[in-house]
Design a protein around this nucleic acid. Structure first.
Lengths: 232, 232
DNA sequence: TTGCCCCAGATTGTTGAACAATCACCGGAA
DNA sequence: TTCCGGTGATTGTTCAACAATCTGGGGCAA
Protein backbone atom coordinates (compact mmCIF):
# COMPACT_ATOMS: atom_id res chain seq x y z
CA UNK A 1 0.00 0.00 0.00
CA UNK A 2 1.51 3.28 -1.03
CA UNK A 3 1.51 6.42 1.05
CA UNK A 4 -0.96 7.88 -1.41
CA UNK A 5 -3.40 5.07 -0.64
CA UNK A 6 -3.05 5.70 3.07
CA UNK A 7 -3.84 9.36 2.59
CA UNK A 8 -6.86 8.49 0.47
CA UNK A 9 -8.01 6.09 3.16
CA UNK A 10 -7.57 8.71 5.85
CA UNK A 11 -9.69 11.11 3.84
CA UNK A 12 -12.65 8.82 4.49
CA UNK A 13 -12.37 9.35 8.24
CA UNK A 14 -13.04 13.04 8.08
CA UNK A 15 -16.38 12.94 9.92
CA UNK A 16 -17.24 14.08 13.44
CA UNK A 17 -14.98 15.27 16.23
CA UNK A 18 -15.13 18.90 15.31
CA UNK A 19 -14.08 21.22 18.12
CA UNK A 20 -12.96 19.99 21.53
CA UNK A 21 -10.07 17.61 21.36
CA UNK A 22 -9.59 17.52 17.61
CA UNK A 23 -5.86 17.45 18.14
CA UNK A 24 -6.07 14.38 20.34
CA UNK A 25 -8.40 12.74 17.86
CA UNK A 26 -5.85 13.21 15.09
CA UNK A 27 -3.14 11.82 17.38
CA UNK A 28 -5.17 8.70 18.09
CA UNK A 29 -5.89 8.10 14.41
CA UNK A 30 -2.20 8.34 13.57
CA UNK A 31 -1.21 6.24 16.56
CA UNK A 32 -3.58 3.54 15.38
CA UNK A 33 -2.26 3.55 11.83
CA UNK A 34 1.32 3.41 12.99
CA UNK A 35 0.61 0.59 15.44
CA UNK A 36 -1.07 -1.38 12.66
CA UNK A 37 2.02 -0.95 10.53
CA UNK A 38 0.22 0.94 7.78
CA UNK A 39 2.66 3.78 8.21
CA UNK A 40 6.06 2.13 8.11
CA UNK A 41 8.94 3.21 10.34
CA UNK A 42 10.89 5.99 8.68
CA UNK A 43 7.96 7.36 6.65
CA UNK A 44 7.98 11.11 6.51
CA UNK A 45 4.76 12.75 7.65
CA UNK A 46 4.27 15.94 5.68
CA UNK A 47 2.23 18.55 7.51
CA UNK A 48 0.52 19.78 4.39
CA UNK A 49 -0.38 16.37 2.95
CA UNK A 50 -1.60 14.90 6.22
CA UNK A 51 -3.49 18.01 7.19
CA UNK A 52 -5.31 18.03 3.89
CA UNK A 53 -6.05 14.31 4.10
CA UNK A 54 -7.52 14.52 7.60
CA UNK A 55 -9.31 17.81 6.93
CA UNK A 56 -7.49 19.48 9.76
CA UNK A 57 -5.36 22.61 9.87
CA UNK A 58 -1.60 22.51 10.14
CA UNK A 59 -1.80 24.06 13.60
CA UNK A 60 -4.01 21.29 14.90
CA UNK A 61 -1.93 18.61 13.23
CA UNK A 62 1.12 20.08 14.91
CA UNK A 63 -0.51 19.58 18.30
CA UNK A 64 -1.03 15.90 17.47
CA UNK A 65 2.60 15.61 16.40
CA UNK A 66 3.75 17.01 19.73
CA UNK A 67 1.80 14.36 21.59
CA UNK A 68 3.13 11.55 19.42
CA UNK A 69 6.68 12.82 19.67
CA UNK A 70 6.45 12.77 23.47
CA UNK A 71 5.48 9.10 23.19
CA UNK A 72 8.44 8.34 20.93
CA UNK A 73 6.03 7.07 18.30
CA UNK A 74 7.30 9.71 15.96
CA UNK A 75 10.64 11.46 15.58
CA UNK A 76 10.73 15.22 15.25
CA UNK A 77 13.79 16.95 13.82
CA UNK A 78 13.68 20.76 13.98
CA UNK A 79 13.01 22.31 10.58
CA UNK A 80 12.88 18.87 9.02
CA UNK A 81 9.54 17.69 10.27
CA UNK A 82 8.38 14.42 11.74
CA UNK A 83 8.64 10.85 10.57
CA UNK A 84 7.51 7.53 11.99
CA UNK A 85 10.12 6.45 14.53
CA UNK A 86 12.60 3.75 13.54
CA UNK A 87 13.98 2.38 16.83
CA UNK A 88 17.76 2.02 16.94
CA UNK A 89 19.75 -0.58 18.85
CA UNK A 90 20.11 1.94 21.66
CA UNK A 91 16.36 2.42 21.71
CA UNK A 92 15.91 -1.32 22.10
CA UNK A 93 18.36 -1.36 24.97
CA UNK A 94 16.47 1.48 26.61
CA UNK A 95 13.13 -0.27 26.14
CA UNK A 96 14.40 -3.41 27.83
CA UNK A 97 16.06 -1.41 30.56
CA UNK A 98 12.64 -0.01 31.44
CA UNK A 99 10.96 -3.38 31.17
CA UNK A 100 13.59 -5.14 33.28
CA UNK A 101 12.80 -2.84 36.19
CA UNK A 102 9.08 -2.33 35.75
CA UNK A 103 7.86 -5.85 35.11
CA UNK A 104 9.78 -7.78 37.79
CA UNK A 105 8.94 -5.06 40.31
CA UNK A 106 5.25 -5.41 39.52
CA UNK A 107 5.47 -9.18 39.88
CA UNK A 108 7.47 -9.11 43.09
CA UNK A 109 5.81 -6.35 45.04
CA UNK A 110 2.19 -6.03 43.95
CA UNK A 111 -0.54 -6.76 46.40
CA UNK A 112 -2.38 -9.98 45.66
CA UNK A 113 -4.99 -9.23 43.05
CA UNK A 114 -7.01 -10.87 40.39
CA UNK A 115 -4.73 -12.30 37.74
CA UNK A 116 -7.25 -13.68 35.31
CA UNK A 117 -6.01 -11.17 32.71
CA UNK A 118 -2.65 -12.93 32.84
CA UNK A 119 -4.17 -16.38 32.42
CA UNK A 120 -6.38 -15.11 29.65
CA UNK A 121 -3.39 -13.69 27.77
CA UNK A 122 -1.54 -16.99 28.08
CA UNK A 123 -4.57 -18.79 26.72
CA UNK A 124 -4.83 -16.47 23.75
CA UNK A 125 -1.13 -16.86 23.04
CA UNK A 126 -1.45 -20.66 22.99
CA UNK A 127 -4.37 -20.49 20.59
CA UNK A 128 -2.50 -18.12 18.30
CA UNK A 129 0.58 -20.34 18.39
CA UNK A 130 -1.44 -23.44 17.53
CA UNK A 131 -3.12 -21.53 14.71
CA UNK A 132 0.27 -20.38 13.47
CA UNK A 133 -0.66 -16.70 13.75
CA UNK A 134 2.45 -14.61 14.33
CA UNK A 135 0.58 -11.36 14.87
CA UNK A 136 -1.83 -13.11 17.20
CA UNK A 137 1.05 -14.33 19.30
CA UNK A 138 2.63 -10.90 19.35
CA UNK A 139 -0.63 -9.28 20.44
CA UNK A 140 -1.27 -11.84 23.18
CA UNK A 141 2.27 -11.45 24.40
CA UNK A 142 1.89 -7.70 24.61
CA UNK A 143 -1.36 -8.14 26.50
CA UNK A 144 0.45 -10.43 28.93
CA UNK A 145 3.19 -7.95 29.70
CA UNK A 146 0.74 -5.06 29.98
CA UNK A 147 -1.22 -7.18 32.47
CA UNK A 148 1.94 -7.82 34.47
CA UNK A 149 2.56 -4.10 34.91
CA UNK A 150 -1.14 -3.54 35.57
CA UNK A 151 -0.69 -5.61 38.74
CA UNK A 152 0.95 -2.55 40.25
CA UNK A 153 -2.29 -0.62 39.88
CA UNK A 154 -0.56 2.58 38.78
CA UNK A 155 -1.92 4.63 35.90
CA UNK A 156 1.46 6.23 35.28
CA UNK A 157 3.27 2.93 35.07
CA UNK A 158 0.53 1.54 32.84
CA UNK A 159 0.94 4.50 30.54
CA UNK A 160 4.71 4.14 30.40
CA UNK A 161 4.33 0.44 29.63
CA UNK A 162 1.78 1.18 26.92
CA UNK A 163 4.21 3.55 25.26
CA UNK A 164 7.07 1.11 25.53
CA UNK A 165 4.96 -1.65 24.01
CA UNK A 166 3.95 0.69 21.19
CA UNK A 167 7.63 1.24 20.50
CA UNK A 168 8.13 -2.53 20.56
CA UNK A 169 5.57 -2.83 17.79
CA UNK A 170 7.69 -0.45 15.74
CA UNK A 171 10.68 -2.68 16.35
CA UNK A 172 8.76 -5.68 15.03
CA UNK A 173 7.58 -3.70 12.04
CA UNK A 174 11.11 -2.85 11.03
CA UNK A 175 12.25 -6.47 11.03
CA UNK A 176 10.95 -9.72 9.69
CA UNK A 177 8.65 -11.38 12.22
CA UNK A 178 8.66 -15.13 12.47
CA UNK A 179 6.99 -17.76 14.60
CA UNK A 180 10.27 -18.99 16.05
CA UNK A 181 10.83 -15.73 17.88
CA UNK A 182 7.58 -15.64 19.82
CA UNK A 183 6.85 -19.32 20.38
CA UNK A 184 9.25 -20.12 23.23
CA UNK A 185 7.91 -17.32 25.39
CA UNK A 186 4.37 -18.65 25.46
CA UNK A 187 5.20 -21.35 27.98
CA UNK A 188 7.56 -19.07 29.89
CA UNK A 189 4.61 -16.78 30.47
CA UNK A 190 2.50 -19.71 31.59
CA UNK A 191 5.20 -20.70 34.07
CA UNK A 192 5.31 -17.16 35.44
CA UNK A 193 1.59 -17.26 36.14
CA UNK A 194 2.01 -20.59 37.91
CA UNK A 195 4.78 -19.26 40.12
CA UNK A 196 2.77 -16.15 40.88
CA UNK A 197 -0.26 -18.16 41.93
CA UNK A 198 1.92 -20.39 44.09
CA UNK A 199 3.08 -17.27 45.90
CA UNK A 200 6.62 -17.63 44.57
CA UNK A 201 6.83 -13.99 43.59
CA UNK A 202 10.60 -13.67 43.74
CA UNK A 203 11.05 -16.70 41.49
CA UNK A 204 8.49 -15.37 39.02
CA UNK A 205 10.31 -12.05 38.90
CA UNK A 206 13.68 -13.75 38.42
CA UNK A 207 12.35 -15.89 35.59
CA UNK A 208 10.93 -12.81 33.88
CA UNK A 209 14.16 -10.86 34.29
CA UNK A 210 16.18 -13.62 32.65
CA UNK A 211 13.70 -14.01 29.85
CA UNK A 212 13.68 -10.27 29.10
CA UNK A 213 17.47 -10.32 28.88
CA UNK A 214 17.37 -13.13 26.36
CA UNK A 215 14.66 -11.45 24.29
CA UNK A 216 16.71 -8.27 24.14
CA UNK A 217 19.78 -10.12 22.91
CA UNK A 218 17.75 -11.89 20.25
CA UNK A 219 16.29 -8.62 19.02
CA UNK A 220 19.64 -6.87 18.96
CA UNK A 221 21.11 -9.72 16.93
CA UNK A 222 18.17 -9.60 14.52
CA UNK A 223 18.48 -5.83 14.13
CA UNK A 224 22.22 -6.10 13.45
CA UNK A 225 21.46 -8.74 10.81
CA UNK A 226 18.76 -6.59 9.28
CA UNK A 227 20.89 -3.49 9.00
CA UNK A 228 23.83 -5.35 7.50
CA UNK A 229 21.46 -6.81 4.91
CA UNK A 230 20.14 -3.33 4.24
CA UNK A 231 23.66 -2.07 3.68
CA UNK A 232 24.53 -4.75 1.16
CA UNK B 1 3.38 38.56 44.92
CA UNK B 2 0.22 38.98 42.86
CA UNK B 3 -0.38 37.38 39.52
CA UNK B 4 -0.04 40.81 37.96
CA UNK B 5 3.50 41.08 39.31
CA UNK B 6 4.37 37.68 37.90
CA UNK B 7 3.14 38.74 34.49
CA UNK B 8 5.13 41.96 34.68
CA UNK B 9 8.20 39.96 35.65
CA UNK B 10 7.68 37.54 32.77
CA UNK B 11 7.50 40.49 30.38
CA UNK B 12 11.16 41.15 31.13
CA UNK B 13 12.16 37.76 29.77
CA UNK B 14 10.96 38.44 26.28
CA UNK B 15 14.38 38.42 24.64
CA UNK B 16 16.00 35.73 22.46
CA UNK B 17 14.72 32.31 21.48
CA UNK B 18 12.94 33.43 18.37
CA UNK B 19 12.08 30.64 15.95
CA UNK B 20 13.00 27.04 16.50
CA UNK B 21 11.64 25.63 19.70
CA UNK B 22 9.89 28.71 21.03
CA UNK B 23 7.13 26.49 22.34
CA UNK B 24 9.54 24.44 24.41
CA UNK B 25 11.20 27.60 25.66
CA UNK B 26 7.87 28.89 26.93
CA UNK B 27 7.21 25.53 28.56
CA UNK B 28 10.52 25.61 30.39
CA UNK B 29 9.94 29.16 31.65
CA UNK B 30 6.56 28.20 33.04
CA UNK B 31 7.88 24.96 34.49
CA UNK B 32 10.55 26.92 36.30
CA UNK B 33 8.12 29.44 37.73
CA UNK B 34 5.77 26.74 38.90
CA UNK B 35 8.56 24.69 40.47
CA UNK B 36 9.73 27.79 42.33
CA UNK B 37 6.24 28.26 43.69
CA UNK B 38 5.75 31.66 42.08
CA UNK B 39 2.66 30.35 40.36
CA UNK B 40 0.65 28.76 43.12
CA UNK B 41 -1.27 25.51 42.65
CA UNK B 42 -4.75 26.25 41.36
CA UNK B 43 -3.82 29.51 39.58
CA UNK B 44 -5.60 29.88 36.31
CA UNK B 45 -3.33 30.50 33.34
CA UNK B 46 -5.17 32.67 30.85
CA UNK B 47 -4.01 32.20 27.28
CA UNK B 48 -4.41 35.84 26.41
CA UNK B 49 -2.71 37.28 29.49
CA UNK B 50 0.23 34.87 29.44
CA UNK B 51 0.68 35.11 25.70
CA UNK B 52 0.83 38.88 25.91
CA UNK B 53 3.22 38.76 28.87
CA UNK B 54 5.65 36.43 27.16
CA UNK B 55 5.31 38.06 23.77
CA UNK B 56 4.23 34.83 22.21
CA UNK B 57 1.13 33.93 20.21
CA UNK B 58 -1.73 31.93 21.65
CA UNK B 59 -0.91 29.08 19.29
CA UNK B 60 2.64 28.76 20.55
CA UNK B 61 1.53 29.10 24.14
CA UNK B 62 -0.91 26.30 23.54
CA UNK B 63 1.93 24.02 22.46
CA UNK B 64 3.70 24.75 25.74
CA UNK B 65 0.50 23.98 27.64
CA UNK B 66 0.24 20.60 25.94
CA UNK B 67 3.73 19.68 27.08
CA UNK B 68 3.10 20.80 30.64
CA UNK B 69 -0.23 19.00 30.77
CA UNK B 70 1.45 15.76 29.71
CA UNK B 71 3.79 16.19 32.68
CA UNK B 72 0.88 16.76 35.06
CA UNK B 73 2.39 20.11 36.00
CA UNK B 74 -0.73 21.77 34.76
CA UNK B 75 -4.36 20.67 34.55
CA UNK B 76 -6.26 21.19 31.33
CA UNK B 77 -10.04 21.10 31.28
CA UNK B 78 -11.57 21.33 27.80
CA UNK B 79 -13.09 24.74 27.10
CA UNK B 80 -12.05 25.90 30.54
CA UNK B 81 -8.35 26.31 30.03
CA UNK B 82 -5.39 25.32 32.11
CA UNK B 83 -4.42 25.98 35.70
CA UNK B 84 -1.47 25.02 37.84
CA UNK B 85 -2.09 21.50 39.11
CA UNK B 86 -3.23 21.04 42.69
CA UNK B 87 -2.47 17.40 43.56
CA UNK B 88 -5.31 15.56 45.27
CA UNK B 89 -5.01 12.76 47.81
CA UNK B 90 -5.39 10.30 44.95
CA UNK B 91 -2.56 12.01 43.09
CA UNK B 92 -0.35 11.59 46.14
CA UNK B 93 -1.23 7.91 46.33
CA UNK B 94 -0.39 7.53 42.65
CA UNK B 95 2.92 9.33 43.07
CA UNK B 96 3.95 7.03 45.88
CA UNK B 97 2.74 4.00 44.00
CA UNK B 98 5.17 4.88 41.22
CA UNK B 99 7.97 5.63 43.65
CA UNK B 100 7.44 2.43 45.64
CA UNK B 101 8.10 0.38 42.51
CA UNK B 102 10.71 2.50 40.78
CA UNK B 103 13.07 3.36 43.61
CA UNK B 104 13.38 -0.05 45.31
CA UNK B 105 13.78 -1.69 41.91
CA UNK B 106 16.62 0.66 41.05
CA UNK B 107 18.30 -0.06 44.38
CA UNK B 108 17.86 -3.80 44.19
CA UNK B 109 18.66 -4.56 40.60
CA UNK B 110 21.03 -1.92 39.26
CA UNK B 111 24.51 -2.90 38.21
CA UNK B 112 27.19 -1.66 40.60
CA UNK B 113 27.97 1.91 39.65
CA UNK B 114 29.35 5.05 41.07
CA UNK B 115 27.16 6.26 43.91
CA UNK B 116 28.92 9.44 44.85
CA UNK B 117 25.81 11.39 43.79
CA UNK B 118 23.93 9.59 46.56
CA UNK B 119 26.56 10.39 49.17
CA UNK B 120 26.73 13.94 47.97
CA UNK B 121 22.97 14.39 48.33
CA UNK B 122 23.10 13.00 51.87
CA UNK B 123 25.85 15.45 52.71
CA UNK B 124 23.89 18.38 51.33
CA UNK B 125 20.83 17.30 53.29
CA UNK B 126 22.80 17.18 56.54
CA UNK B 127 24.18 20.66 55.96
CA UNK B 128 20.73 22.03 55.18
CA UNK B 129 19.29 20.36 58.27
CA UNK B 130 22.02 21.81 60.50
CA UNK B 131 21.47 25.22 58.93
CA UNK B 132 17.72 24.86 59.51
CA UNK B 133 16.92 25.33 55.83
CA UNK B 134 13.67 23.55 54.97
CA UNK B 135 13.89 24.19 51.25
CA UNK B 136 17.52 23.08 51.27
CA UNK B 137 16.52 19.80 52.85
CA UNK B 138 13.69 19.33 50.39
CA UNK B 139 16.00 19.97 47.43
CA UNK B 140 18.70 17.64 48.71
CA UNK B 141 16.12 14.96 49.37
CA UNK B 142 14.79 15.25 45.84
CA UNK B 143 18.33 15.01 44.51
CA UNK B 144 18.84 11.86 46.55
CA UNK B 145 15.76 10.12 45.16
CA UNK B 146 16.53 11.22 41.63
CA UNK B 147 20.01 9.74 42.08
CA UNK B 148 18.50 6.47 43.29
CA UNK B 149 16.48 6.09 40.12
CA UNK B 150 19.44 7.22 38.06
CA UNK B 151 21.23 4.05 39.20
CA UNK B 152 19.08 2.21 36.70
CA UNK B 153 20.65 4.17 33.86
CA UNK B 154 17.39 4.60 31.97
CA UNK B 155 16.46 7.94 30.43
CA UNK B 156 12.78 7.06 30.45
CA UNK B 157 12.75 6.16 34.12
CA UNK B 158 14.75 9.29 34.92
CA UNK B 159 12.20 11.37 33.07
CA UNK B 160 9.29 9.74 34.85
CA UNK B 161 11.00 10.32 38.19
CA UNK B 162 11.70 13.95 37.31
CA UNK B 163 8.02 14.49 36.58
CA UNK B 164 6.95 12.75 39.74
CA UNK B 165 9.33 14.86 41.80
CA UNK B 166 8.03 18.01 40.12
CA UNK B 167 4.56 16.98 41.19
CA UNK B 168 5.89 16.41 44.70
CA UNK B 169 7.07 20.00 44.75
CA UNK B 170 3.49 21.05 44.01
CA UNK B 171 2.33 18.98 46.95
CA UNK B 172 4.75 20.79 49.22
CA UNK B 173 3.67 24.14 47.84
CA UNK B 174 0.04 23.46 48.69
CA UNK B 175 0.79 22.66 52.32
CA UNK B 176 2.84 24.18 55.10
CA UNK B 177 6.39 22.87 55.00
CA UNK B 178 8.19 22.34 58.26
CA UNK B 179 11.52 20.99 59.40
CA UNK B 180 9.99 18.12 61.32
CA UNK B 181 8.73 16.51 58.14
CA UNK B 182 12.04 16.27 56.32
CA UNK B 183 14.53 15.83 59.16
CA UNK B 184 14.02 12.13 60.01
CA UNK B 185 14.62 11.05 56.43
CA UNK B 186 18.11 12.50 56.25
CA UNK B 187 19.61 9.68 58.29
CA UNK B 188 17.37 7.09 56.62
CA UNK B 189 18.93 8.09 53.34
CA UNK B 190 22.39 7.83 54.85
CA UNK B 191 21.57 4.31 56.09
CA UNK B 192 20.38 3.34 52.59
CA UNK B 193 23.70 4.39 51.09
CA UNK B 194 25.54 2.38 53.74
CA UNK B 195 23.53 -0.75 53.00
CA UNK B 196 24.02 -0.25 49.29
CA UNK B 197 27.78 0.03 49.63
CA UNK B 198 27.83 -3.05 51.83
CA UNK B 199 26.16 -4.95 49.03
CA UNK B 200 22.95 -5.40 51.03
CA UNK B 201 20.75 -4.34 48.15
CA UNK B 202 17.62 -6.16 49.24
CA UNK B 203 17.81 -4.60 52.70
CA UNK B 204 18.34 -1.15 51.24
CA UNK B 205 15.31 -1.62 49.00
CA UNK B 206 13.18 -2.85 51.90
CA UNK B 207 14.18 0.11 54.06
CA UNK B 208 13.29 2.51 51.27
CA UNK B 209 9.94 0.82 50.65
CA UNK B 210 8.96 1.15 54.29
CA UNK B 211 10.09 4.73 54.44
CA UNK B 212 8.13 5.70 51.34
CA UNK B 213 5.02 4.17 52.87
CA UNK B 214 5.44 6.23 56.02
CA UNK B 215 6.08 9.42 54.07
CA UNK B 216 2.93 8.88 52.05
CA UNK B 217 0.83 8.43 55.18
CA UNK B 218 2.28 11.57 56.70
CA UNK B 219 1.52 13.59 53.59
CA UNK B 220 -2.01 12.26 53.31
CA UNK B 221 -2.65 13.17 56.93
CA UNK B 222 -1.23 16.65 56.35
CA UNK B 223 -3.36 17.15 53.26
CA UNK B 224 -6.51 16.04 55.09
CA UNK B 225 -5.67 18.50 57.86
CA UNK B 226 -5.04 21.27 55.35
CA UNK B 227 -8.29 20.78 53.48
CA UNK B 228 -10.36 20.63 56.65
CA UNK B 229 -8.74 23.88 57.76
CA UNK B 230 -9.52 25.36 54.38
CA UNK B 231 -13.14 24.37 54.74
CA UNK B 232 -13.56 26.00 58.14
C1' DT C 1 -37.34 34.15 49.16
C1' DT C 2 -35.80 30.17 46.47
C1' DG C 3 -34.89 27.69 42.46
C1' DC C 4 -34.64 27.49 37.49
C1' DC C 5 -34.02 28.99 32.67
C1' DC C 6 -31.89 31.67 29.52
C1' DC C 7 -29.02 35.24 27.83
C1' DA C 8 -24.85 38.12 27.16
C1' DG C 9 -19.86 38.44 27.82
C1' DA C 10 -15.63 36.17 28.19
C1' DT C 11 -12.54 32.42 27.14
C1' DT C 12 -11.11 28.52 24.72
C1' DG C 13 -10.83 25.51 20.28
C1' DT C 14 -9.81 25.61 15.54
C1' DT C 15 -8.97 27.49 11.15
C1' DG C 16 -6.61 29.70 7.09
C1' DA C 17 -3.35 32.69 5.41
C1' DA C 18 0.89 34.96 5.77
C1' DC C 19 5.81 35.58 6.53
C1' DA C 20 10.47 34.12 8.40
C1' DA C 21 13.86 30.64 8.92
C1' DT C 22 15.88 26.60 7.51
C1' DC C 23 16.80 22.67 4.63
C1' DA C 24 17.44 19.72 0.35
C1' DC C 25 18.50 19.71 -4.20
C1' DC C 26 20.80 21.05 -8.35
C1' DG C 27 23.76 23.26 -11.58
C1' DG C 28 28.08 25.86 -12.35
C1' DA C 29 33.01 27.12 -11.28
C1' DA C 30 37.65 25.78 -9.88
C1' DT D 1 35.54 15.47 -8.94
C1' DT D 2 34.52 18.61 -5.30
C1' DC D 3 33.01 22.68 -3.48
C1' DC D 4 29.95 26.68 -3.60
C1' DG D 5 25.86 29.32 -4.02
C1' DG D 6 21.02 29.92 -5.47
C1' DT D 7 16.29 28.28 -5.60
C1' DG D 8 12.19 25.93 -4.32
C1' DA D 9 9.95 23.36 -0.76
C1' DT D 10 8.92 22.59 4.02
C1' DT D 11 8.75 23.78 8.67
C1' DG D 12 8.30 27.36 12.63
C1' DT D 13 5.59 31.10 14.23
C1' DT D 14 2.34 34.74 14.20
C1' DC D 15 -2.11 36.93 13.49
C1' DA D 16 -6.99 37.64 13.00
C1' DA D 17 -11.23 35.64 12.72
C1' DC D 18 -15.02 32.58 13.80
C1' DA D 19 -17.29 28.56 16.26
C1' DA D 20 -18.16 26.25 20.49
C1' DT D 21 -18.44 26.29 25.27
C1' DC D 22 -18.42 28.08 29.88
C1' DT D 23 -19.49 31.62 33.63
C1' DG D 24 -22.23 34.68 36.01
C1' DG D 25 -26.23 37.12 36.66
C1' DG D 26 -31.09 38.82 35.70
C1' DG D 27 -35.78 37.74 35.23
C1' DC D 28 -39.59 34.57 35.98
C1' DA D 29 -42.50 31.25 38.28
C1' DA D 30 -43.56 28.74 42.52
Amino acid sequence: MTLEDILADLRLHREGARHAETGMWVASVLRERIAAGQLAPGSKLSEEALGEALGVSRNTLREAFSALAAEHVVTRIPNRGVSVARPSADDIREIYRVRRYLEPAALAWSPATDNTPLRHAVERAREARDAGSVSGMADANQAFHAAVVALAGSDRLDLLMTQVLAEMRLVFHSMVADTAFHAPYVEDNARIVELLEAGERAEAAALLTGYLGRAQDQLLAAIAEESSVRRS
